[in-house]
């Protein structure tokens, strides 16, 4: 599968689609800013555009890649999430980034949960990791909310990142962990939602 046929994923609030030219301005705004300090940035204008082109080419080379996250109501872009495995990556990574002005609304959780589900159920992934900067506490917290755990034995990209290993497909198949993630997403989508009993342990 190449970027000719990037699948579209829909969640309660979001639609994930392949990156397009018209989506570039928000990508650039994020990658040329301090927000990108844990993602290899900030980049200059040329580097930012070339990285965006590479995000698209990644789909063609690997058959998977990063989706652009759209708000289903407004169609505005909110960030990107999906799979990422450029040269030198020990294995396929689940990655996410949210534009700074829309952070804190659970979009990364909702999008990455959907992307992970797609890779497990449709693309045959057996497992997944995320390579995180140890200073990027927001992303580490998100990895933990997704059920991922620090894997000290896994090979990192370059020794400056920490590896979080995601729960396997079986560990997310109708389990309490999966229900908990879905409840958290539900709470973001509908803040008046009151779950009828969280797990107590």
């Amino acid at each position: 599968m190449g970027h000719r046929d990037i699948p579209v994923l829909r969640t309660r609030r979001l639609e994930l689609r392949g990156p397009q030219a018209e989506d570039y301005p928000n990508f650039k705004a994020t990658f040329t800013s301090y927000r990108a300090r844990f993602m290899g940035g900030p980049l200059n204008d040329y580097e930012s555009w070339m990285l965006y082109a590479a995000e698209i080419g990644h789909w063609e080379i690997r058959g998977f890649g990063m989706w652009m996250i759209h708000d289903r109501e407004t169609d505005h872009t909110l960030g990107m999430a999906g799979g990422w495995q450029p040269a030198k990556w020990p294995q396929a990574e689940l990655a996410w980034m949210i534009w700074p002005q829309v952070a804190g609304k659970g979009y990364a959780l909702e999008a990455t949960h959907a992307a992970r589900d797609y890779f497990y159920r449709q693309a045959g992934w057996e497992n997944a990791v995320s390579y995180l900067d140890p200073k990027n506490l927001d992303s580490i917290r998100l990895a933990e909310r997704l059920g991922a755990c620090r894997d000290r034995d896994a090979q990192s990209v370059d020794g400056n990142d920490v590896v979080y290993r995601h729960p396997s497909r079986a560990e997310l198949d109708n389990t309490r962990l999966a229900h908990g993630i879905e409840m958290e997403i539900e709470h973001y989508a509908d803040p008046t939602f009151k779950p009828k009993g969280f797990a107590l342990d």
């Binding site: 970027h3 990156p19 397009q20 030219a21 570039y24 555009w49 070339m50 990285l51 965006y52 082109a53 590479a54 995000e55 698209i56 080419g57 990644h58 063609e60 080379i61 450029p86 040269a87 030198k88």
Partner: peptide
């Protein structure tokens, strides 16, 4: 160079 190759491919879409 891998990213450069990916960027060459993505250039067509953009």
């Amino acid at each position: 160079s891998w990213r450069t190759l990916a960027g060459e491919i993505g250039h067509w879409t953009l």
